[in-house]
Design a protein around this nucleic acid. Sequence first.
RNA 1: CGGGGUGUAGCGUAGCCCGGUUAUCGCGCCUGCUUUGGGAGCAGGAGGUCGUGUGUUCGAAUCACACCACCCCGACCA
Length: 488
Amino acid sequence: MSKDLTKRADDFSKWYNDIVAKAGLAEHSAVRGCMVIKPSGYAIWEKMQQTLDKMFKDTGHVNAYFPLFIPKSFFSKEASHVDGFAKECAVVTHYRLKNADGEIVVDPEAKLEEELIVRPTSETIIWNTYRGWVQSYRDLPILVNQWANVVRWEMRTRLFLRTAEFLWQEGHTAHASAQEAIEETERMLDVYAHFAENYMAMPVVKGKKTPNERFAGALDTYCIEAMLQDGKALQAGTSHFLGQNFAKAFDVKFAAKDGALDYVWASSWGVSTRLMGALIMSHSDDNGLVIPPKLAPTQVVIVPIYKGDEGLAKINEAVAPIKQKLEAKGISVKYDNRDSQRPGWKFAEYEMQGVPVRIAIGERDLQSLTVEVARRDELSKQVMPIEGLEQAIEKLLTDIQNNLFKKALERREKTTHTVHTFDEFKQALEKGGFVSAHWDGTPETEQKIKEETKATIRCIPLNNKQESGTCVYSGKASTQRVLFAIAY
RNA sequence: CGGGGUGUAGCGUAGCCCGGUUAUCGCGCCUGCUUUGGGAGCAGGAGGUCGUGUGUUCGAAUCACACCACCCCGACCA
């Protein structure tokens, strides 16, 4: 029987949950709001990590690791930062359990002098550490990244998109000038955009957040915004210019060349396992997951079709050199010659798992020296000669990668609406997608639009065209359009 | 965290209103044979703290209360 997925058109949310479950990416754990990332899901995350990590290293960053726990007092040093995170912090109050008449209880004798916060992000502990690292301009810049888990006690969770604990990377850099810190902030935004578009095949809009949507403690928050298949936007990565806020809060000063003491300038930037959700909702279809070749743990699966042990032996023999040649090209190949499942079952299974290319090879192919090649993105099949197959597959993987990006880009363009009146605005929102509209620049208008329509300003696109117009809500003068959408 | 819903084998479910034999069916799983170019067929078999706890009752999957988890809708957030 088929493992039926809910159709996207019927219930997108349910489709997403189904696909996460049926492709074996993750499941709910015994702990509320926390997920177990299963091997198939973690393998994709590892590909993302490897790719990003190389990009970070190539832009001069190094990895380090800071503690999971943060003294409560650190947290209150930067006022807006506390405000932003206070409501969703897990707090450690004790350090011991004891056995009380057969029941394990928290030992009231073991109360911590100072309570510890499980990091929701690491700015405070890192800037407290940086104080000891920086004295002179010669110690700058500090370009550090860490791969870590963080906890934000979310009330409403969804696998990958929003969980109480999630995996991410957080870059924390320290600079001698505002200009340099801003350049870093923009550079890392570019890295994220490059990764999203060229590896995830997911077009993104680079932009700046409005003050309302800014990171707690930042002077400016930049973001990449993705548009998913259901017409909702998703913030896929952020990069913050922190000014001197954390340096002041943690007293991190440096002596400049001329001997003057000044506070250090900062940036921070991060992407999380939320990218997994973005990936799924960008490309996948009613048959299951679709993974772009550059992030697919298995790029090609080979399925033998045979009768009897002898038949399989012949195919095994024919597959060995094919697999070897593909692997020599750096393509990851899985040969699934399990006898416990039939070919049709395997076809459906690997489609569910999103393997980009499937090669089927049977007795007929041995005669004609061909194989059947199926591409996951278009669900189409063609017969190819074994001779030169590795070149053809290599090209096919590139085609699939490009095609996924192209389709996603076309979808986004088709669902981006430019509107002039509030009526048009509301109509466009119902269709889903980005709505490009004039905004008077005030938080009040932004808030009112949010209350009336649930739409938020996703970003003010970078290099935005300046044009005079009137705010779609207030009718006041405006100098540029911004992107609104319903967001995750 | 507020409102609504759901929880029965690995998964999906019947039974619950109206308490009373051995808890239903399908998929999956195990064994065997036949099969293998799109989720195989036949035969046999295993598998259950009915989400957890407390209570009501001669008797609880079924009634009551509490708790837990998930789903939907809000508020909050990456």
